[in-house]
């Protein structure tokens, strides 16, 4: 088998037999991979302006998918379509489909609240809630949805450990969320996202506001998390994409120019625009 198959659950039935979709050309892993999410002909608008056009790609389960491309090409817009955060901006709309475990996230089966619990998000600028303690920040995904975790202390410790922050904050869980350093604050945001046990974690340039040491810690963390969570990370740092991701999508002016396994994209890009971008000729 020259190309790996990506198995896609049949829409509407998560336990149904899985259907094989055309794999991206550059994908060379032999084991069949399951697509946790599938983006199909996604077009996203601000008003009447389509900033993302006809994008289709799978997001493979328990791997890291990097989204790269020059500033303004639609990276953030794309990931925000995956948890329906795009629609919180007035005047926006989307067409096409986004499937999570075979269910259309824009369909009637999933409401945005349920979807966002399953597809967590970490933003560019660390944004812990300043009026909440560290502990309450971690639990915010529960309290803000009017739910209670089975055992709050365990949830807090677990999430903070997974975010590699526990040892640094275990003695000041009551301190305000705004009292942490930039890197710690970002890991707190990761813990907050992880605390509701999401299947997918979207990260929109999570390191761009951090120093190199904090960045290295987050990258390490992404590696560890990828064994349990499906991660989509937006980055404009090519080295970062190469370091942390297994698959890479290159967006350019709203078009998906190339998608495939990261090594292939970086060593043998098939589109001249990809090559220009990763060799630093623009962007």
């Amino acid at each position: 088998m020259s190309l790996a198959s990506i198995l896609v659950p049949v829409p509407g039935r998560s336990d149904a037999p899985r259907q094989v979709v055309t794999p991206p050309p550059a994908m060379t892993k032999d084991a069949p991979r399951t697509a946790k999410m599938v983006i199909e002909s996604l077009t996203a608008y601000y008003g009447s302006h389509a900033v993302l056009r006809n994008v289709s790609l799978p997001v493979v389960e328990r791997t890291v998918t990097a989204v790269i491309g020059p500033s303004g090409c639609g990276k953030s817009t794309m990931v925000r379509c995956l948890n329906r955060m795009h629609e919180i901006i007035p005047g926006t709309s989307v067409s096409g489909r986004v499937l999570l475990d075979g269910l259309d996230v824009y369909g009637r089966h999933l409401d945005p609240i349920e979807l966002r619990r399953r597809v967590g998000m970490v933003f560019q600028k660390p944004n812990p809630f300043p009026t909440m303690s560290v502990r309450d920040n971690v639990l915010a995904g529960w309290s803000l949805t009017g739910t209670k975790p089975p055992n709050a202390d365990d949830v807090v410790e677990n999430a903070l450990r997974r975010a590699a922050l526990w040892d640094e904050v275990k003695d000041r869980l009551k301190a305000p969320g705004g009292s942490l350093s930039g890197g710690q604050a970002q890991r707190l945001c990761i813990a907050r996202a992880l605390a509701v046990q999401p299947d997918v974690l979207l990260m929109d340039e999570p390191c761009s506001a951090l120093d190199p040491i904090a960045t290295a810690r987050i990258e390490e963390l992404i590696h560890e998390l990828a064994s349990t969570v499906t991660i989509v990370i937006v980055t404009h740092n090519m080295q970062q994409a190469a370091r942390v991701s297994e698959f890479t999508a290159f967006l350019y002016m709203g078009d998906l120019v190339e998608f495939g396994d990261t090594a292939g994209i970086f060593t043998r890009p098939s589109d001249p625009r990809t090559e220009d971008y990763i060799t630093g000729r623009f962007g």
């Binding site: 948890n83 955060m85 919180i88 945005p112 609240i113 349920e114 979807l115 966002r116 619990r117 967590g120 998000m121 933003f123 944004n127 812990p128 809630f129 915010a140 995904g141 803000l144 949805t145 945001c189 907050r192 996202a193 509701v196």
Partner: peptide, 8 residues
């Protein structure tokens, strides 16, 4: 945004 992204 952070709160909305948590499903609130």
């Amino acid at each position: 945004e952070a709160a909305l992204a948590l499903g609130a």
